[in-house]
Design a protein around this nucleic acid. Structure first.
Length: 1198
RNA sequence: CCGGAUGUGGUGAAAUUGGUAGACACGUCAGACUUAGGAUCUGAUGCCGUAAGGUAUGGGGGUUCGAGUCCCUCCAUCCGGACCA
């Protein structure tokens, strides 16, 4: 009886599949366990040996848990939307649906070949309408929700509309204050209830868009005009497209976003309750990038230009020039529609009745105040009740801060006070104003700023800093080239160079800009004023400041920040030292411990203590506010592509309307061409039906009719009537991570057409207990799916708010690539006679280490160049020491004539090295990511057919820890294969067949078994699969030495092995059970269905009744090892009485001694000091000390 | 540039808590069986040295009776950085 792995594996794979033995029930009395692999993208190149690493690990764990009595969900499916399929379609004209289908078939065949225990009945594919129907459905929920900051959870947007109707948005400020859409309403981000009601629908919808968790905005993309398409960051190299090398620029396009920033804090907190590696948590934490500091307003010293559009120059110019026309419009509007209280007040304050000149709805900066007495630098506000709630503080604070910074005092009264007795209010105002001096008496000019600047047109530069303590060390400001102020503040002299610089920056990707080492930048000509001392600070623009981060502006503190320091040195900006000796003039010192100098009111303080003081002072003076900042930005959720989920959104008159739930799924139409649409739109924009009329109604009666979009309509008893009308469907599609953000839920209930997942079922399966995948998903997929889970939780659609309880990151398997050294010469030709054609090139292939000058076999030549040529598939021909023999090279030329040194070197001479008659060259070996494009991939199918799936599984595990990346090398696989053969020989002999006997085991044999149980169980539990495999080897070696063939030892060992090598285990288990040899032991077997019905208690396990029949007729007894139960560790077999102690002298091992484990210090000292080796080292002297650690070691100190 | 990870024999690695560095394999060498060996079995194998012994976990420094493990510092390699998934 030989180990015929091919037959065995085929037989059991078929049987398992025919028995549906991996079917998983959604109800069981057994504890549940959900094991998931990261969603694979079915690429056209199929799996390589690196991919299954994690799948094998999770499969082992799942099988192990099943043996341990768990109901295990371990599904597999495909993330089948994505760019590569579309790119392939562009290149070859094949429809992505077709290629995807093909690819999935390949993947499944490859996966099945390895013997995974997937329940394929639960397979899902993101590109399947029955799946993406629910992706669209969840999108609609996101679209229909906003984040309520008071409740700290998502809520339906209908609630927000109610609030707006009652009180406007004061308690619910627009989440992203920096965001401004065109139109005057958004210049001032607050409105009252009456204003809300007066907004037209477009305005209302635009405002709501600012709150939706899935919203539409504008974002920059890499735009390639020549290709007419948007490119991924990695498709852009050095500012040109990777394909074709065409120029790429930044372009603003309409985009969908997910408001993930609202979840930033909860995503951060959630990390506390999940079992992810510290590295992973750190990466996510850094990505979210929460920091606290201050947002500081710097006034820009403006070029004095009078406002335009006003016939007379007003005496007091207080409006922000850049937005003046807009704010003016708004203020006029407000004047026309005063609240009753404002009206009362105005009548009392009007026309100098008070003796002071009071204006109403006056613009100061970008703010509109209710009333203002400019002569006294006083503003008067009549607040609705909600102004007293703390929630509005931040807006008010900002406004107050601004007004304060510009010398204004704010008087506030409530509506109630006015209603009660407006006279008293007016009296108070008069009293207050009387005490103040008039500014006309302070100053002749109209300047009203306390700093002496002019409010007229004076823009503020907002800067976020985590180091407010360095405020007096600010020597320059840098704003991003995209910053809105650039245009306003650049002086005429600097205009040309600024524009030139911006053009340069536009061509560069964000990554390039951050990675750039060269210091670039240009001075705008403008100066900001330090709010504390009025010092003038030059404002620069530079690419290293990105518009999307913080406020898009930084304050440069060269003595404390390395990058700022280099910038200052490079542009010769004088450096202010605020940290004395901590700064050496050569290098910035980012310390927080230094004692401040040259820092006005914080001199002498330690920096970290000064931070708080500066922030308080700034808030007091209204210069700035304390602020928490996040690096994370809202997630771009649309792609200008074809092969993705269509958005269930229709546009009518510029307003986005959701499709009705009944209209889902909105199927992806069939297209003939995948070329991009006009103006950077996706391919869907090329379909007239899509953008003009939408889907034609398919009546029930004509349900089989194919709509103009190619999708076959299902007749579900509803009509798509609302889809009629003059409107357009959204032409963007969703990105790859849409489906993968929630797919783990769908596996629980994959065929449900009433809901994305039945609530009872998701309550049962709950979180994923073990999630295995690569670190490359650390921040993308993992954060998004965590956010979606929190959202679904907020909506009370699921009962948990973290998707993955434990995450294990598998390492990469890297491949080895080989490079041949070729030296080229000019002037020689090798065809036929060696001539002297001066333009010909001759290439010599030489050993790795060969130097040009050592090529003595040539006459002196003109060196042309040296190049390294990739030897494609070199790993199949090169020895592990990098030696390529002439024989193998010839084989290579025969087998792969087309691949032959693919570079355009027409001809070669090879300079073989020679030893022992063998000709060879050494070639360079490099470890690279395993990838088709690097021609170093290894297909698992090849390994499986050569050694079997069990060997492959165990070898991948044996390579090293799952988390670690390691190079693939087939050499070691022999050892694992040998082990399986040796294991087989414990059970069966080539000639005698099964040799298992029923004899009492010896203590020695029991010890081997129980050591194995202990080691393998704990190793499996902690995902240390490589050491578990070696434990199997040790046990097998020891049992072979003991010549043990006893059933009571081997059968438990077999169950231990089953998760790792399921085929051989099932076969041997079957052989063991097979009558007539010995009847199987009572209690070891049970069936899945019994387990689901019965209690988990082991006593209830019964022998399977039903005989299951193999497809090929053989009776297999129905007792699969899959349903066995895991052997139990008996510590009593492991007890030791003595130990071979290592004896060290001064920490160095000199000998070992066998000493009883319960020996005391004194006994040990006696034994050790009598030892010859120890005596020799002591040389007659007494030891200084003797350290004895029980069960560990003994150290003699001399 | 920012962030993360990893450095141990010729190779993959082990050492779970500061306690015998290199388990288990590959490879190599020697031997047995054999018509044969890409089967199987036995032995050796970090490096230097005949040996005693010395030396060794990327480099340097520190803490400790004792450091691969803890601390400081430097170096190298790999991975990720928002439209590849």
């Amino acid at each position: 009886m030989e180990y015929k792995f091919r037959d065995i594996e085929k037989k059991w794979q078929e049987w398992w599949s025919a028995q549906k033995i991996y079917r998983v029930m959604n109800a069981s009395t057994r504890p549940k366990c959900y094991v998931l692999d990261m969603f694979p993208y079915p690429s056209g190149t199929g799996l390589h040996v690196g991919h299954p690493l994690g799948y094998i690990a999770s499969d082992i764990y799942s099988r192990y848990k099943r043996l341990k009595g768990f109901n295990v969900l371990h599904p597999m499916g495909f993330d089948s939307f994505g760019l590569p399929a579309e790119q392939y379609a562009l290149d070859t004209g094949q429809h992505p649906a077709e290629t995807t289908k093909k690819n999935i078939a390949t993947f499944k065949a490859q996966l099945d070949n390895i013997g995974f225990c997937y329940d394929w009945d639960r397979e899902i594919q993101t590109s399947d309408p029955s799946f993406y129907k629910w992706t669209q459905w969840i999108f609609l929920q996101l679209f229909d929700s906003y984040y309520d900051r008071q409740k700290n959870k998502a809520e339906n947007i209908a609630l927000l509309i109610e609030v707006f109707q009652k009180e406007g948005n004061v308690r619910h400020p627009i989440p992203n204050l920096a965001y401004r859409q065109a139109g005057p309403q958004f210049r001032i981000p607050f409105f009252r209830a009456d204003e809300w009601k007066d907004f037209d629908e477009k305005t209302q919808q635009d405002i709501l868009m600012q709150y939706r968790l899935a919203y539409c905005g504008y974002g920059e993309v890499n735009w390639c005009e020549a290709l007419g398409t948007v490119l991924a960051n990695d498709e852009v190299v050095n500012g040109v497209s990777e394909r074709g090398g065409y120029p790429v620029v930044k372009k603003k396009l309409r985009q969908w976003y997910l408001r993930i920033t609202e979840y930033a804090d909860r995503l951060l907190e959630g990390l506390g309750k999940v079992d992810f590696s510290e590295a992973m948590k750190e990466m996510q934490t850094n990505w979210i990038g929460k920091s606290s500091g201050a947002e500081i307003n710097f006034q820009v010293k403006p070029p004095l230009t009078p406002p335009k559009g006003e016939d007379t120059t007003p005496k007091y110019q207080t409006a922000h020039l850049s937005l003046y026309s807009i704010t003016k419009m708004l203020s006029e509007e407000k004047r026309k529609n005063p609240t009753p209280e404002e009206l009362i007040m105005w009548q009392l304050l009007l026309a100098n009745k008070t003796g002071f000149h009071i204006r109403r709805q006056h613009i100061i900066g970008t703010y509109i105040v209710d009333f203002a007495c400019l002569d006294k630098l006083t503003t008067i506000e009549i607040d609705g009740g909600y102004h007293n709630t703390p929630e509005t503080l931040f807006y008010d604070k900002e406004r107050t801060a601004f007004l304060k910074a510009n010398g204004f005092t704010e008087l506030r009264f409530t509506n109630e006070e006015v209603k009660e007795d407006a006279g008293i209010v007016v009296k108070k105002i008069i009293e207050f104003l009387s005490k103040l001096p008039s500014i006309s008496r302070i100053s002749e000019s109209s300047k009203v700023s306390p700093l002496g600047g002019d409010l007229e047109g004076a823009p503020m530069l907002k800067v976020y800093t985590t180091r407010p303590d360095t405020i007096f060390g600010v020597d320059f400001m840098v704003i991003s080239p995209e910053h809105e102020l650039v245009e306003i503040i650049t002086t005429a002299e600097q205009k040309a160079s600024v524009e030139e610089y911006i053009a340069h920056v536009k061509s560069r990707s964000e990554r390039e800009r951050m990675a750039e080492k060269k210091i670039t930048g240009v001075f705008t000509g403008a100066y900001a004023l330090n709010p504390f001392n009025g010092r003038e600070i030059p404002i620069w623009i530079s690419e290293y400041v990105l518009a999307g981060y913080g406020t898009g502006a930084i304050m440069g503190v060269p003595c404390g920040d390395e990058r700022d320091h280099k910038f200052a040195k490079h542009f010769n900006i004088p450096i202010t030292n605020i940290i004395g000796t901590w700064y050496n003039g050569e290098e910035a010192n980012p310390t927080k411990e230094a004692i401040l100098e040259n820092s006005d009111f914080i001199n002498g303080l330690v920096m970290k203590d000064a931070m708080e003081i500066v922030i308080s002072k700034m808030e007091e003076l209204g210069i700035g506010v304390r602020k928490v900042n996040y690096k994370m930005r809202d997630a771009a959720f649309s792609r200008q592509r074809y092969w993705g989920e269509p958005f269930p959104i229709k546009w009518i008159n510029g307003i986005a309307y959701p499709l009705d739930e009944m209209e889902l799924p909105l199927e992806l139409p069939h297209v003939e061409k995948y070329t991009p649409g006009p103006d950077g739109e996706g391919p869907l924009a090329n379909i007239p039906e899509w953008i003009h009329k939408g889907v034609k109604i398919a009546k029930q009666s004509e349900s089989s009719e194919v709509s103009p979009l190619g999708a076959t309509e299902q007749s579900e008893g509803w009509e798509r009537s609302s889809l009629e009308g003059a409107w357009a469907l959204e032409t963007n599609t969703m990105p790859g991570y849409a489906g993968s953000s929630w797919y783990f839920l769908r596996y629980m209930d994959p065929h449900n057409d009433k809901a994305f997942c039945d609530r009872n079922i998701s309550d049962y399966w709950n979180q994923v207990d073990l999630y295995i995948g690569g670190t490359e998903h650390a921040v993308g997929h993992l954060l998004y799916s965590r956010m979606w889970t929190k959202f679904l939780y907020d909506m009370d659609l699921i009962s948990f708010d973290e998707p993955y309880k434990k995450l294990v990151n598998q390492g990469m398997i890297t491949g080895k690539s080989y490079f041949i050294k070729a030296i080229g010469f000019l002037g020689y030709k090798i065809a036929g006679d060696i001539g002297s054609d001066p333009n010909a090139k001759t290439w010599y292939i030489v050993s790795n280490e060969m130097k040009e000058e050592n090529l003595d076999f040539l006459n002196p030549k003109i060196l042309y160049s040296t190049s390294w040529i990739r030897l494609k598939y070199g790993h199949q021909y090169v020895n592990s020491d990098g030696k390529l023999s002439k024989q193998n090279f010839e084989k290579y030329l025969r087998e792969r004539p087309d691949e032959y040194l693919s570079v355009n070197h027409s001809s070669f001479l090879i300079k073989w090295d020679n030893r022992d008659g063998e000709e060879y060259i050494f070639i360079r070996e490099e470890v690279e990511k395993m990838s088709k494009s690097k021609f170093n991939v290894e297909n698992p199918d090849d390994i499986v057919s050569k050694y079997g799936a069990d060997t492959f599984r165990m070898y991948e595990m044996f390579l090293g820890p799952v988390e670690m990346s390691k190079p693939w090398d087939t050499k070691g696989i022999e050892g694992v294969h040998r082990f399986l053969k040796k294991f087989w020989r414990l059970f069966a002999d080539e000639t005698k067949g099964l040799i298992v006997i029923d004899e009492q085991p010896t203590p020695e044999e029991l010890k081997v078994l129980h050591q194995a149980i202990k080691k393998i169980e704990s190793d499996t539990e902690r995902f240390s699969f490589n050491t578990a495999v070696s434990a199997f080897m040790i046990a097998t070696n020891e049992l072979s030495d003991l010549k043990c063939h006893k059933r009571s030892i081997l059968e438990p060992l077999l169950i231990l092995l089953a998760p790792y090598a399921p085929h051989i285990a099932e076969e041997l288990y079957y052989q063991l059970q097979k009558p007539p040899q010995t009847p199987p032991k009572e209690g070891l077997r049970h069936t899945q269905s019994q387990l689901d019905e019965e209690s988990i208690s082991k006593e209830n396990f019964k022998l399977a009744e039903s005989s299951k029949v193999l497809p090929f007729g053989e009776d297999l007894g129905g007792a699969s090892i899959l349903n066995a139960s895991y052997p139990k560790l008996e510590e009593k077999y492991l007890i030791e009485t003595t130990k071979e102690y290592p004896i060290s002298i001064n920490g160095k091992l000199r000998t070992t001694l066998n000493i009883s484990l319960d020996a005391e210090q004194s006994e040990v000292e006696k034994i050790v000091l009598e030892n010859e080796v120890v005596k020799k080292w002591l040389a007659g002297n007494p030891p200084k000390k003797l350290i004895y650690v029980k069960d560990k070691m003994i150290n003699v100190v001399i």
